[in-house]
Amino acid sequence: MKFKQIFAFSVASLLLAACSATGTAFSGLEKPAEGQSKLYVYRTKAFKGGGVHFDVNANDTYIGHLRNGGYISAELPPGDYEIWAKTEVRRGVTVPLQPNEIQCVKASIGFGAFVGRPKFQHVPLEQCKAEIAGTVHSF
């Protein structure tokens, strides 16, 4: 009986690991081009909701697919943007982007009826620098 439990746990772990981001390790925040804004959306690696991933949008513009332990970035014109994603429901946060500025949004997963729901939080740059360092580029 013990072998079956170990085998089941191993298979579940392998499946969850396959849902994690795979890509280039984060190497630092890059400044935007003159007059533009840079947005980073990241998700620290967590067991809760590890198999849930989603498309991230800035207003009506698709900016990338975010997985567990991953980050995406986009260079955008200055303005107010709703950063959002949808699984069961649409969730987002509004972020004001200023010229020549970097802004960060932390994503996580909340509970849903059938699948985890995306959660977004606009975070200070110092918090972002500390947390995004352990992520990889999400494809």
Score class of each variant (00 low, 15 high):
Arg90Val: 11
Thr135Cys: 14
Ser108Gly: 14
Val123Thr: 03
Phe54Gln: 07
Tyr62Leu: 10
Phe114Gly: 12
Lys45Met: 08
Ala107Gln: 09
Ala12Lys: 11
Gly50Arg: 15
Glu82Asp: 04
Gln121Gly: 04
Val41Ile: 10
Glu34Asn: 12
Phe7Asn: 09
Gly49Ile: 07
Lys31Phe: 02
Glu88Cys: 08
Lys106Glu: 15
Gln103Trp: 00
Ser13Glu: 11
Ala74Lys: 02
Pro124Glu: 13
Val136Tyr: 02
Pro77Leu: 08
Leu29Asp: 01
Leu125Thr: 01
Phe47Gln: 03
Asn57Ser: 13
Gly110Ile: 04
Ala25Glu: 11
Glu88Val: 08
Gly69Ala: 12
Thr87Pro: 06
Val52Lys: 10
Lys2Ser: 07
Thr135Ser: 13
His65Ile: 01
Ala33His: 14
Cys104Asp: 06
Lys45Asn: 10
Leu29Cys: 00
Ser138Arg: 04
Ile132Asn: 12
Glu88Tyr: 09
Phe9Glu: 15
His53Lys: 10
Ser20Phe: 10
Ile6Asp: 13
Glu75Asp: 07
Gly49Ala: 07
Asp55Ile: 02
Phe7Thr: 10
Ala8Arg: 08
Lys119Arg: 06
Phe3Ala: 11
Cys19Gln: 15
Asn57Lys: 11
Trp84Cys: 01
Asp60Asn: 12
Lys119Ser: 01
Phe47Trp: 08
Val136His: 03
Pro118Gly: 06
Lys86His: 09
Arg67Trp: 06
Ser20Arg: 15
Gly112Ile: 14
Gly69Asp: 13
Glu75Pro: 03
Lys31Ile: 01
Ile63Glu: 08
Gly92Asp: 09
Val56Cys: 02
Glu126Pro: 03
Ala12Glu: 14
Pro118Trp: 06
Ala33Asp: 15
Thr87Glu: 10
Arg91Thr: 14
His65Leu: 03
Leu39His: 00
Ala12Asp: 14
Phe9Ile: 15
Trp84Pro: 02
Val41Lys: 02
Trp84Ser: 12
Leu16Trp: 11
Phe114Cys: 06
Gly51Thr: 13
Leu97Asn: 02
Thr135Asn: 12
Pro77Gly: 07
Ile72Lys: 01
Asn59Arg: 02
Cys128Gly: 11
Val115Ser: 14
Ala130Asp: 14
Lys45Gln: 11
Ala8Ser: 09
Val89Ile: 13
Gly69Lys: 13
Glu126Ser: 12
Ala58Asn: 08
Ala21Asn: 05
Ile102Pro: 00
Ile102Ala: 01
Gly69Phe: 10
His137Gln: 10
Tyr62Ser: 09
Gly134Phe: 07
Thr22His: 14
Thr135His: 10
Pro118Ala: 06
Glu131Trp: 02
Gly112Ala: 13
Val11Gly: 05
Arg91Phe: 11
Ala21Ser: 11
His65Gln: 02
Ser108Thr: 11
Phe47Val: 12
Asn59Trp: 06
Leu39Arg: 00
Asn68Gln: 09
Gln121Trp: 03
Gly35Arg: 09
Val136Ala: 09
Asn68Glu: 07
Ser73Tyr: 00
Gly28Leu: 05
Gln103Ala: 13
Ala58Tyr: 06
Ala12Pro: 13
Phe9Ser: 14
Thr87Tyr: 04
Leu29Arg: 03
Gly64Ser: 09
Glu82Gly: 00
Pro32Gly: 10
Gly70Lys: 05
Phe54Ser: 07
Ser27His: 05
Glu101Ile: 03
Ala74Ile: 04
Gly51Tyr: 12
Gln121Thr: 15
Lys45Cys: 06
